[in-house]
Simulated scan of single mutants.
Amino acid sequence: MNIIIVGLGKMGGNIAKKLLKDNHNIIGFDSDKNQSNTIEKYGAKIIDSLEDINSLDLSPKIVWMMLPSGKITQKTFTKLLGILSPEDIIIDGGNSNYKLTRARFDDAKKLDIHLIDCGTSGGIWGLKNGYCLTIGGEKNIYEKLRPIFNSLTPKNSKGNLYVGESGSGHYVKMIHNGIEYGMMQAIAEGVELLKNKSEYKLNISEIVNNWKDGSVIKSWLIDLISDELINDKNLENFSSYVDDSGEGRWTIEESIELGIPTPVITAALFARFRSRQIEPISGKVLSAMRKGFGGHEVKNG
């Protein structure tokens, strides 16, 4: 199939490479010429602007957006609506908020343009292992795009999962990422407990490597941290600052709207917030109160 990919960074670039390997025709655009040049070497045709889509002799035009969620995705989507024609298709493979996806679907529908939301998991390893996709939107459009999804996903997945109407693909991906936050935090806390049990002089790298096989908690996340610990036993190449990309926040917002408690995911997100603070005032307030009511000794700042 002929696919126009907008956004050729780590994820979009690998998606382009994987589709090219399966003999799809890729037309790529990225504002970063270095990214474009890299994908061109793999056989993609590169266009210099979104407006160049107009000159492509394709019907329908299929545009896969692989961009960071937020303003850049909205700006690109709006621009595409002014460029594309009725029956053309936009696939949003990024981590857009599902509520925005539903609104965009309605905007596209007014112009007879189709929007498919595709939750895309697999990270930088998707090129090798295949991607896990959860797809929302019109079922008949999904079926037309199955050759694309079949090429991107593991062979036994048969193109992966159509989950429902518009927004559902991004909704499921959002919950997936919330679960991911909780799992990562539990592993991190467990490793910290092992590290601080100094009387046993535990070899953390060997222990985590042992968990990779036969353990109840064996997982890809365990594999990844095991590999890092083998190369850097104290993780000295990393800081304790941990960012978040938004899906954990949206998951918690959803839990509040639905009245469903999510203490693990919430605590995991808050741990990331705390990781970015240096000498937060809340700790100082606690120390001050303890000194005030009990005369407890405190450390000076």
Rank of each mutant, 00 (worst) to 15 (best):
N2G: 09
I3T: 05
G9T: 07
H24R: 14
I27E: 02
G28N: 03
K33A: 11
Q35R: 10
E40Q: 11
K41W: 12
I46G: 04
I47V: 14
I47K: 00
I47L: 07
D48S: 15
M66H: 01
G70A: 09
F77H: 04
T78Q: 10
K79C: 12
L81P: 00
I83C: 07
S85M: 10
E87N: 13
E87A: 05
S96E: 11
T101K: 02
R102D: 09
R104K: 03
R104Q: 09
D107L: 15
G122Y: 11
G126C: 11
L127Q: 08
N129I: 03
Y131L: 01
I135D: 00
G137E: 02
I141D: 00
P147I: 02
P147N: 10
P147K: 07
I148Y: 06
N150K: 12
S157K: 07
G159Y: 03
N160W: 06
N160Q: 15
H170G: 13
Y171R: 13
Y181P: 03
M183G: 13
A186D: 04
E189K: 10
V191K: 10
K195L: 13
K195N: 15
K195Q: 14
K197M: 15
Y200C: 07
D213W: 09
W220I: 06
L221R: 02
L221C: 07
L221W: 01
I225G: 12
D227A: 14
K233F: 05
Y241P: 00
S245G: 13
G246M: 03
G248K: 01
W250N: 04
I252H: 04
I260D: 12
L269D: 08
F270L: 14
R274P: 14
S275E: 06
G283P: 15
G283E: 15
V285R: 02
V285I: 15
L286E: 11
L286K: 11
S287Y: 10
A288T: 15
A288I: 10
R290G: 09
R290K: 13
E297Y: 08
